[in-house]
Amino acid sequence: MIATEAGLVGIIDQTNLEMGASAQEIADFCTRSVPFGFRALCLLPDQVGVAMPILRGTSISLAACVSFPLGLDRWEVKAREAAELCDLGVDEIDMVVHTGRAREGDLGWVEQEVAAVRRAVAHPRLLKVIIEIPVLPADLAGPVGLAAEAGGADLVKTSTGYKRLGIRATSAGDVRLLRSRLSPKTGIKAAGGIRSLGQLEEMVEVGATRVGASRGIEIVQEWRLRRGADPRGL
């Protein structure tokens, strides 16, 4: 069980990847999210310019997705997009691996493309690599995660969580598997269908160090209610 609100918000990537969201909708999302002090806000690349001035002066990192949600780009394009986003001031990159090559078990491909993006995302910026476990054969989730780690991922992320793909939600088993295979230095971001405090805590218990959620505010409010506090933080 997560003991403090700081401990909770410090692992949440509050996420809005809604296709076609207007600048005003994203600005409202950012403005609503800032008082909660999330670890990061995670957005699509074309919304970075909207979020940047709202997050300036806060402790919240800005994360942007690369090759989202299919990952079906050449590595040069992924690296270019990551470099452009870093130039714009993004703190963290969430890249999607080539999901087709990952399903084939072409681990060299995955490692090479992650390494190419890593070169464009210099530390202290963080590189999270989405390996889309829900579409992978069960025996490949571990090896693909290891290939992402070998390429230079700071965190391996379970899934895009993109509902239009029609894939299953991330499971605690996905996280447990990655935790058992990856180095302790590599973080694990659980994402995809995590909509409640209970689900989030289950992910953390089995090894997630970061959680992506579009309902981060509701999850924090649920935590406050459980503690008997005003959900508005008053």
């Binding site: 296709m19 074309d46 989202f68 270019r80 997009e81 452009e84």
Partner: peptide, 17 residues
């Protein structure tokens, strides 16, 4: 595609390749 949300430079790089 499908989202239309890429950065301008990466979109051009994607087309060139």
């Amino acid at each position: 595609a499908p989202l239309g949300a890429m950065t301008s430079g990466s979109r051009v790089a994607q087309a060139e390749l």
